[in-house]
Amino acid sequence: MSKYRMLKYLRQEVLPTTMCLGCGGGTVLNIFANAVDELGIDPKDLVMVSGIGCSAWIPSPYFKADTLHTTHGRPIAFATGIKVGLPDKYVVVISGDGDLAGIGGNHLLHAARRNIDIAVILVNNFIHGMTGGQVAPTTPFGAKTTTTPYGNIEHPLNISETVAAAGASYVARWTTANPFMLLKSIKKALTKKGFALVEVISQCPVQFGQRNKLRSAPDMLRWFLKNSVPLKKAMKMSPEELEGKIVIGEFIDRERVEFVEELNKIIRGVYVNAD
């Protein structure tokens, strides 16, 4: 038996994880377990939802709570239903960039617009990893993948800024090389009333790294540390200077009217008028 304290939150019969060597998904799971532990949340009050892809495997077999492994791109749609039905539970979506921002991009935008009280942890590894390393909507400009062997000619989607503009209550972006800030943001996202998104820039040394001269997890983490710019510093920089950089920090933290609360207010009002 391993001695690590967080193992009590995991289904130990399925460990060690099936993730590749050095995958950042395990780090996200580890930090999420720490966040749950530090907030003192009972795992019985947690509902974890994930879609399809490598990052969707983070909660689904490993975290010992109610987990729902849904269809491709739709975890936020399922999570919306869960939150409306069970408003007392913490509903958390952990999935990847191809799942949430690619095929399920519209669900992400509209959940943020509605400001429904779910926490979304979007693990962005710049690539469709599980299917063999194809170009994703988040692949950096010029990066090589199996479908863009001469370099990507599309510009990546800036997920955090898009969701912040769509109306979320809390949006933050960190890399897996900033574990303490990420832990703080996940704790904030879990307790925040309203839609909370934590975008985690995570390493995929197997599919992304090996085609872009970053063959190992330490190489990718060094690259993250070298290329990340704090939000305050980024505000003073021009778009040309920010090309290819990762802006990290808390993009938005505000109070807005929450969807489920308003819905229940209307339901109660209708019942009172009917009597």
């Binding site: 395990g26 799971l29 303490f180």
Partner: peptide, 15 residues
């Protein structure tokens, strides 16, 4: 505890 927090495979424990 950075090693403990960052280990993707839950292998490290600092007590």
């Amino acid at each position: 505890r950075r090693c403990e927090l960052m280990c993707p495979d839950f292998a490290i424990s600092v007590e």
